[in-house]
Design a binder for these strands. Structure first.
Lengths: 206, 206
DNA sequence: TATAAATGTAAACAATTGGTTACTTGATTT
DNA sequence: AAATCAAGTAACCAATTGTTTACATTTATA
């Protein structure tokens, strides 16, 4: 049966279109008209369901964070030895950024705006708390197994794992110009991933 | 003598105001009127000297790159042993990002726009070529001194040195929320710098 | 089945935007 | 000192923007 009305699908379409629009053009550059056109809904519906452009952005960035944290939990890193778990996490983080370039763009936008949309989001804070705990448990296990150094700060390790992927991909356009090579060709990408794994493993090894 | 007209100072004021405006609000979010007000010049002067908002942005981002590359050259890393040279470079990069947060924001904006303003800038490419050469020479020296591993890719090393500082500072707002600590308090900043030096030195060591 | 609530459309609005026009004032040159 | 050009001002414009108003239609419910 073909329903002529479908509020859930309308909301989903708006959110998906908004995510791409905000990621491509930033918060200021994004156009509500364009979001409506891509989502194939009347512009009025955006205000009906999401109140304002600003609030729509808030929901988009919140969902983006919850999505990546959820994907990380699915890795089931508890079942691996510490070294494999850490390598898996580095690989995952890289691949996630590579497959979801919108995530990086959205995080940049949110930081340009001093994270004002995320400030009130308890859910995102909790999801991240679990994530830091996960990395801490890998570190503990690595120490017990005699593989990792003691006293490594899990937050700084987390940040570095993200950083070495994020920066490369975020700055792929300026990078490809100033380094005079295509940073996005598959050979360069593979090489970078291996480089990153090496960086992290050397950092934690005894 | 007080000159009522001073084109050089007018241009300088416009460029300085534009740099801050673009860094704070991005290319789309920046307002030509605001740049004119901050620079204390008539809006007409911006178009007189810089043609368009877009072209003004181009000059701002070009100058930003030339400035950092120039500052790096002043470090005179050739006179240091390889390990000290590399540590100095990591410290410098961190401090430069810390003291010039506009640089990070501008690079983000340029990447959001697929680096279209930098594409035609021969000068920036040349400046960066010198920079990669500098890092390569440090690596060579380190190998000769028996301190560094062989075959380290200078471009990926460069990218990683930048990444570990850039990401932390770029995402300081979202980071302070999701990690539930002020990433910008001086203790956290010192700790991060030491962490980064350790990361790079462990990466290159034999 | 009548009715109210939810879902949707079209058009318009007030404010803002990058950019321009028409004009004035100061400095330099011959 | 006249003339010419560069530097500067104020007001305005057409286009675009996020948001709203007024209205129509579908769906669920009493």
């Amino acid at each position: 049966m073909s329903r002529t009305r479908d509020p859930e699908s309308t909301k989903r379409n708006i959110l998906a279109a908004a995510k791409m629009e905000f990621a491509t053009k930033g918060l200021s550059g994004a156009r509500v008209d364009d979001i409506a056109n891509v989502a194939k809904v009347n512009k009025r519906m955006i205000y009906h369901y999401f109140e304002s452009k600003e609030n729509l952005f808030k929901l988009v960035i919140e969902k983006a964070y919850l999505d990546i944290r959820e994907a990380e939990l699915k890795l089931n890193l508890e079942h691996l030895d510490a070294k494999s778990a850490l390598e898996t996490l580095v690989r995952f983080t890289w691949k996630y950024y590579l497959d979801n370039p919108e995530f990086i763009r959205l995080v940049n936008s949110e930081n340009l705006h001093h994270a004002r949309h995320l400030k009130t989001s308890k859910e995102v804070v909790q999801a991240n708390r679990n994530y830091v705990g996960l990395v801490q448990s890998i570190l503990d296990r690595g120490v017990r197994e005699g593989e990792f150094r003691d006293q490594i700060d899990p937050v700084n390790l987390n940040i570095t794992i993200a950083a070495i992927g994020y920066y490369y991909l975020n700055n792929r356009f300026t990078g490809s110009i100033i380094f005079e090579q295509d940073l996005m060709d598959s050979e360069a990408l593979d090489k970078r991933l291996e480089f990153n794994i090496e960086t992290i493993l050397k950092l934690v090894s005894r």
